[in-house]
Design a protein around this nucleic acid. Structure first.
Lengths: 145, 145
DNA sequence: TTAATTCTGGATATTTTTATCCAATTATCC
DNA sequence: GGATAATTGGATAAAAATATCCAGAATTAA
């Protein structure tokens, strides 16, 4: 449903949103999100190319959000690493169907569309603000060392 | 979003629903749904084990629906080959979270839940009955030879 | 300028998903 | 019983997703 890569990207973005004060290094994001560092490195690259994070090399460098948390949606994050694909045309390439989907693929696409909508409406800020018992990613203790 | 395998399973089931008169052979279902026959064979096995189709070997054998189209949901079909997994516990295994999901995973799970619900509410019969311009799987001409 | 830090990009490995093939088994027909 | 038709299950192959590693480039500090 949601790929591992997308899950990682979301965690990383939430982590950065929770630690906006200073740039975060890959290694630190990795431990904070329980994502394999070497793979996270690739995920962060994708997020960087999608202009969702800014990267900075060298001492004191790392990653930080490119936009304010209220301006970044879950959908953008997911689409940056593993785009949600709507069903636009008949997957069977049936001539007669053309752009008009049959009932089956119409139903499937509606479901995808609703997920897309839900994700588009949710911003990073909302994730942070929600007063749940559990702080995202956080296991009781504070993340700042 | 929806795996290839699930897509194939849905096509096969719709095909069987549209051809309930007599048992359909793998090869025939394959051409009718544009699914690679050798792989479809495995998919049908899964559907058979899930008791969504009945199989019959030998001459005149093949596959047919195990239940009436109005009693088979899209969700059952998908779950038979590639189960939809809700997020039940924190994917990071954070002690403090336990069963209470953080805002991020709560949102993700809500999306999954809505898809699950939509699929649970849709039966094969509805797929057949919907008066769309495009007949499912069908490219203008009738499927019966 | 040198050393240390950190991202970047490429090569590669591992795992999962998707796909193929075939011998064995079951069923039907003559 | 023998021939044919069809699924079953196992072995295997190919492709995609996930993961690892490392040399190179950029940045900072001294």
């Amino acid at each position: 449903m949601i790929s591992q890569t997308a899950e990682y990207a979301l965690r990383a973005m939430v982590f950065l949103a929770m630690n906006q004060d200073n740039a975060q290094v890959t290694e630190r994001i990795a431990t904070g999100t329980k994502v394999p560092a070497s793979y996270l490195s690739k995920v962060l690259q994708s997020l960087s190319r999608a202009a969702l994070v800014k990267s900075q090399r060298g001492l004191g460098g790392g990653f930080c959000l490119a936009k304010a948390p209220e301006e970044t949606t879950i959908l953008e994050i997911i689409n940056a690493v593993d785009p949600i694909k709507r069903i636009e045309t008949c997957p069977l390439d049936l001539n007669s169907h053309g752009v008009v989907l049959c009932a089956l693929h119409k139903r499937l696409d509606e479901a995808i569309a609703s997920v897309e909508q839900a994700f588009e409406k949710t911003t990073l800020k909302e994730i942070l603000a929600k007063p749940t018992k559990s702080v995202p990613l956080c296991d009781g203790a504070s993340l700042d060392k």
